[in-house]
Design a protein around this nucleic acid. Structure first.
Length: 517
RNA sequence: CGAGGCGUAGCGCAGGCCGGUAGCGCACUUGGUUUGGGACCAAGGGGUCGCAGGUUCGAAUCCUGUCGCCUCGACCA
């Protein structure tokens, strides 16, 4: 990070920052041993370092020996599994079915749709040999599965009565990345790709919008992430799509992260793969297809939207551990307090909560507190002999510095609601942040200044891809999307002239611009 | 893939220019004292210096190549 601009967006620095007093020569200060061992670089000092250290020290993920490929560790996998479960239920509730396609796709398939080839060619991994035998036709590791699914669909589809196909696949895809960042940029990443085929354009378009809304709702209601729904401009469109829609989230450094996409593919892929059917009127027609995806990148969004200088803040509804209990004891009664902690845990588990008792010996309580705060566990309970005697527990929320001492029964019974409160607190904070750091501008100077300050900008644009390209070159900002009229953010229809070219604005509303991951 | 930086114990680093077979802090193990916000004392264990070649009697150190990580750029989710 440049160190200017977006730093200003960050919240006041808590006491950990004291460990990082600047050195005389202005170089990045060395951490003292404590900070080096346990803490993370504050967001305001270096957001990039903060991100890398949080990911690593919270045990979410690690680097692998393979360029650009990460290892998702158990804590990160538990998080991803919770996300998968939540989304999968939603997909099933709207009639989608899961299936599984091969990771290997014949090279010729990728070549069949012109825009698709052009879009993905530079990042394809190619398998050209088996053992020492050279393959007549190489395979590629799927960068996405439209082509092979289209190929199979053509064999499954005869009549309009067969439609719609409402399919989804959980898996991973490969797009060569030369720069790695866990969860954000990796050569292999984990996702779900939905693929549907319909008998009419209207039905396909409805599906595209429905699934984008599903992502939006899931982000808002489960991950506590505010995201802006809208359509991508032509230059940001998926390779082979007629229209691409996205949800965009704002990270705490002010950058945008595309957190999910949904594409209306029209008949582009069905033409290329002969996905056709006989209509009621006995005509032959190509199917209208869609695809939509949300990837493990969303974990990066969770980290960078909710995290603070102490580490992660897990949204309670998908937190792998919702409540951690730290038993307080001395040598003679420690084991007993761990048992008591388990009893308390079972009371919470009866309410359906995910609870962990930290019975580690040989580390101090303070160490445990900091450790679980780094991992973002929403609520911590401390249970010591005195608490046990007087029937209370000490409760501390991850998003607060206050400790409360509550009657045990009340603390237990109130836990689900407490977690809900934290969920809403996280959403509100992120939502306020997004709104506070987005401004409308009408001149290019204002535009540049706002982007430089790390903000999102709402501005009129003429729609010319070349102008977008120049804006990107000059400011590093791109059109994130054109927000929908009916989304909760930035919906007002307006008229104006292009902030860059002065030509009449396209779209009938302001376009959202920002720097991006 | 272009420019730059880096790779020495689990983590963070020193040593390298002036080759002689490795050191510090934290972590780890054991014992003791501690324990309600990142404990302390003592005694220990652990690396052949990313990998592969080369130069040399001898390479962490010099040379070449390669792999990986970080930053900026290009590309992308």
């Amino acid at each position: 990070m440049s160190g200017s601009g977006s730093v200003a967006l960050l919240q006041p620095i808590p006491k950990t920052a004291i460990l990082y007093a600047m050195t005389k020569d202005g170089s990045k200060p060395k951490q003292d041993n404590k900070a080096q061992q346990y803490g993370v670089t504050p967001q305001s000092v270096d957001f990039n370092d903060w991100y890398n250290e949080v990911v690593k020290k919270s045990d979410l993920a690690d680097h692998s020996p393979v360029a650009g490929a990460m290892v998702v560790r158990p804590y990160g996998t538990a998080l991803w599994e919770n996300i998968q479960r939540g989304l999968d239920e939603r997909f099933k509730a709207t009639g989608h079915q899961n299936l599984l396609f091969p990771t290997l796709i014949p090279m010729s398939f990728i070549m069949k749709e012109a825009d698709h080839v052009e879009g993905f060619a530079p990042e394809l991994f190619t398998v050209s040999k088996i053992g020492s035998d050279v393959l007549a036709e190489p395979y590629v590791l799927r960068p996405t599965s439209e082509t092979i699914i289209g190929h199979m669909w053509s064999g499954w589809l005869n009549s309009y009565r067969d439609l719609p196909f409402l399919h989804n696949q959980w898996g991973s895809v490969f797009r060569a990345e030369l720069r790695t960042k866990p969860f954000l940029r990796t050569s292999e990443f984990f996702w779900q790709e939905g693929h549907t085929a319909h008998a009419s354009e209207a039905e396909a378009r409805h599906e595209v919008r429905q699934q984008l809304d599903e992502y939006h709702n899931f982000c808002r209601d489960v991950l506590a992430l505010p995201v802006v729904r809208g359509e991508k401009t032509a230059s940001e469109r998926f390779a082979g799509a007629e229209n691409t829609y996205s949800i965009e989230g704002m990270m705490r450094d002010g950058k945008a992260l595309q957190s999910g996409t949904s594409h209306y593919l029209g008949q582009n892929f069905s033409r290329a793969f002969e996905v056709k059917f006989q209509t009621k009127e006995q005509r032959e027609e190509f199917a209208y297809t869609t695809s939509w995806g949300l990837s493990s990148r969303i974990i990066g969004a969770i980290i960078m939207t909710h995290g603070d200088d102490f580490g992660l803040m897990m949204p309670p509804r998908i937190a792998p551990i919702q409540v951690v209990i730290v038993p307080i004891g001395q040598k003679d009664n420690f084991d007993e307090m761990v048992v008591q902690g388990e009893i308390l845990a079972s009371e919470l588990r009866r309410l359906g909560l995910r609870v962990r008792v930290d019975g580690r010996e040989g580390v101090t309580n303070g160490f445990k507190y900091n450790d679980w705060e780094l991992k973002g566990v929403p609520v911590r309970l401390e249970l010591g002999p005195r608490d046990l005697e007087s029937g209370v527990v000490v409760v501390k929320n991850r998003n607060s510095t206050h400790k409360e001492t509550l009657p045990r029964a009340e603390a237990v019974a109130g836990m689900p609601e407490r977690l809900e409160t934290i969920h809403h607190w996280l959403y509100q904070r992120a939502s306020d942040f997004l709104l506070e750091n987005t401004i409308s501008v009408d001149t290019y100077d204002e535009f540049k200044a706002a982007i430089e300050a790390g903000k999102w900008v709402r501005a009129f644009h003429c729609g010319d891809p070349e102008s977008e390209r120049q804006i990107k070159e000059e400011t590093k900002a791109t059109a994130r999307n054109i927000p929908f009229d009916d989304s909760e953010f930035f919906a007002e229809p307006e008229q104006g002239v292009c902030v860059h070219t002065g030509k009449p604005a396209a779209y009938g509303k302001r376009v959202l611009f920002g720097r991006q991951y």
